[in-house]
Simulated assay, not measured.
Amino acid sequence: MLVDRLCHFVGMAKQPHYIKEWRHFRGYTQEQFAERVGVTKSYVSKIEGGKRRYDQPFLEAAAEVLRCQPADLIVRNPADPDGIWSIWDDLRPAERNQVVEIAKTIRRTGTDG
C-alpha cells in the first residue's frame, strides 16, 4: 500500500544529532559509551553513522551517561566554542545575569542589526 511505503520512507529520514560529538566531549570510546548506555558498540556505531535511528529511550539513557539533556544531543554541538550554550556554560552566575539583561535589552529595543 502506498501509505505504508510513504510512512516507512518518512520514518527512515535521517535524524540529525550530536551524539558522537557529546561522546567525544565526555571522553568515551564507542565501546565505553555503549556499555554505560546498555547497548552494543555496533548499535552506537549505526546511530552515529546515520544507519539506524535513535529513539527516545536511547536518547534518555545516552543523555544520562553524557550528563546533559536529551534535547542537547539533538540541537547542541558541545564542540562549538562559539555556540551560545558553550559560552553560557562557562559563565559564573553573576555573568549569566548580565547576559540575560543584555538579551532583554536587545529584545526590548528591537535592534535588527
Rank of each mutant, 00 (worst) to 15 (best):
E101S: 02
K20I: 00
I106F: 14
T111F: 11
Q69S: 08
R76P: 05
A61K: 15
I19A: 03
C7T: 12
K41P: 02
R53D: 10
V3R: 11
C7K: 15
D80P: 01
K41M: 10
D72V: 14
K14M: 01
Q69V: 09
I106K: 15
Q15C: 02
R23E: 12
D80Y: 02
R5N: 13
W88V: 10
E35P: 00
I74D: 07
W22Q: 10
T40P: 00
E21G: 03
E64S: 08
H24C: 06
I74M: 14
P70H: 03
V100D: 04
Q32M: 12
A61C: 09
G11C: 07
I19V: 14
F9T: 07
D80E: 06
W85C: 05
V10E: 14
V37R: 08
Q56F: 00
R92N: 05
R53E: 10
D82F: 06
Y43R: 05
S42W: 00
S45T: 12
R23F: 11
Q56M: 01
E95M: 12
Y54I: 04
S42N: 03
S86A: 13
D90A: 15
K51Y: 13
M12Y: 00
L66I: 09
V37T: 08
S86D: 06
R96W: 05
G38C: 11
R26H: 06
C7Q: 12
A63T: 13
V44C: 15
R36K: 14
G27I: 11
K51T: 07
E48A: 07
V3F: 09
L91M: 05
